[in-house]
Design a protein around this nucleic acid. Structure first.
Length: 435
RNA sequence: GUGGCUAUCGUAUAACGGUUAUUACUCCGGUUUGUGGUACCGGUUAUCUGGGUUCGAUUCCCAGUAGUCACCCCA
């Protein structure tokens, strides 16, 4: 502990690797997105939940799964003074499921529909737009196996993305089946890859033992070629899984949500079963080539609860939207938070008496919902006027010794430079009449 | 996690191994005491940290820290 304590100010006076401060525009963007997403989720019947940032490390080891990259190398875990092994949550679903089980939500009317907006942590090498702490807006529907739940999740997600500006998006979707069909399929897949084992790159050969499904979305050119003829999970679906998937697609068609079957889509987390999907965006590059980019993804996780050690299965389906990805997209159209209004008034005060009384005036304006800017450090008139000029507000209020005594204030039009002395009690009404 | 590149005032930048470390913007103060935008004057502030090579290091080498890029992977 003491050995690696940071003693140089230059070392501890800097952010921890992969962490960052969020201020100004980025803050507004994130909050604006959240308010929009929250509103839509509420309309669809979702309710809020906040789970702790810290969970027992084992929750993620069991839930997300060994052999996944998230657990193998990206989990942000450590030991507390009390020797508890805890981890910063890398994703939301396992935590929400934990909450559902712990609080016996199965005794409430089903399903439980929840949304959250939380920071998530992955301990990988940072890059621009990829921080160790990022934020996800997630939605989960727990307690029903019905395909309509899958469809609602997808539809709400698509609606949110469209509402904040996403244009050419479609759903890339696949089913990896229920327990039986999934096992059958994995067996067939392994057999297929063994036949081609000499052509497989080392990394994918390794995956054959740890997580064969992941070979399907390998980026290795050789593997991509092999994957062309790999068995499709859809061919191994049992009757029930097949019916489930077919109905999900019917819902999507009914809702006019464009989708594309992708037999190689498997997603990175272990707990998925049946439906898996990603929302894709079609991008046309400057050189005219078309490519698709995954914005977000999710799926069904009917076996997660039991994997976590619960006595019985809790069917569920969910999605996680990476907020940083959304607001950094070219199509993001700025969605301001409701409370942020651009002030059109700069408040200037002169002298100590005026400054004292100005607190009451400011509160009066606030009650009338008139936001103001002011300078707390400058005392002379010309300095404050220069600041008002720089911030480009159309009006200033000048409140000095004389005005404080008379109970008035001067309202100055910055454009025409005309001024008018207004009694304080008429000030809010007068300002509102200015437009 | 693997590999590459980068690091000088708040921001952006300049300086062959050798003076007081450059410039622009910002910031702060002022140009006779309550009316701005321009102009002028003045001021604060930096070689990321720790080692090494050298008579001498902002400059070369090593390590740490952070950023960035590619991979891995993902949101």
């Amino acid at each position: 502990m003491a050995a690696n304590k940071k003693t140089n100010a230059s070392e501890y006076l800097t952010n921890v690797k992969g962490m960052r401060d969020i201020t100004g525009e980025t803050y507004y963007d994130m909050q604006g997105f959240f308010e929009k997403a929250q509103e839509i989720a509420e309309y669809y019947g979702f309710r809020p939940i906040k789970t702790p940032i810290l969970e027992h490390t084992d929750l993620f080891l069991r839930g997300v799964g060994d052999g996944t990259d998230i657990v193998d190398k990206e989990i942000y875990a450590f030991q507390t003074k009390g020797k508890d092994r805890v981890a910063l949550r890398p994703e939301g679903t396992a935590a929400v499921m934990r909450s559902y089980i712990q609080h016996g939500m199965q005794s409430l009317p089903q399903p439980i529909m929840l949304y959250y907006c939380e920071p998530m942590f992955r301990h990988d090498r940072p890059q621009k737009g990829r921080y160790r702490q990022h934020h996800q807006f997630g939605m989960e529907i727990l307690g029903t196996p019905k395909p309509v739940a899958d469809a609602i999740i997808i539809q709400t997600t698509v609606t949110i993305l469209r509402e904040v500006g996403a244009k050419n998006i479609f759903v890339s979707i696949n089913s990896i089946g229920d327990k039986d069909s999934r096992n059958e399929y994995i067996k067939a897949l392994k057999a297929y890859y063994r036949k081609h084992i000499n052509d497989l790159p080392a990394l994918d050969r390794e995956r054959l033992n740890t997580n064969p499904l992941r070979i399907l979305d390998s980026k290795e050119p050789k593997t991509i070629a092999i994957n062309q003829d790999a068995p499709s999970s859809l061919d191994y679906l049992g009757n029930e899984a097949k019916k489930h998937f077919k109905q999900v697609l019917e819902y999507l068609e009914e809702a006019d949500i464009p989708y594309e079957l992708n037999k190689n889509l498997v997603r990175g987390l272990d707990y998925y079963s049946n439906t898996v999907f990603e929302i894709m965006e079609t991008i046309i590059d400057e050189d005219g080539t078309e490519r698709t980019l995954s914005i977000t993804g999710g799926g069904r996780y009917d076996y997660l609860a039991r994997t976590l050690g619960h006595k019985k299965d809790v069917p569920g389906v969910g999605v996680g939207i990476g907020i940083e990805r959304v607001i950094e997209s070219p199509w993001w159209n700025e969605t301001r938070p409701r409370i942020v209004k651009k002030p059109k008034i700069f408040f200037i005060q002169l002298g100590f008496d005026a400054r004292l009384r100005s607190l009451k005036v400011l509160e009066m304006l606030r009650k009338a919902k008139i936001p103001v800017q002011q300078s707390l450090s400058k005392d002379n008139l010309s300095g404050q006027l220069a600041l008002a000029e720089k911030t480009e507000v159309p009006y200033t209020i000048i409140f000095g010794q004389k005005e404080a005594m008379d109970g008035t204030a001067i309202v100055r039009d910055m454009q025409s430079r005309s001024q008018k002395t207004v009694p304080l009690e008429e000030l809010p009404a007068y300002i509102r009449s200015l437009k």
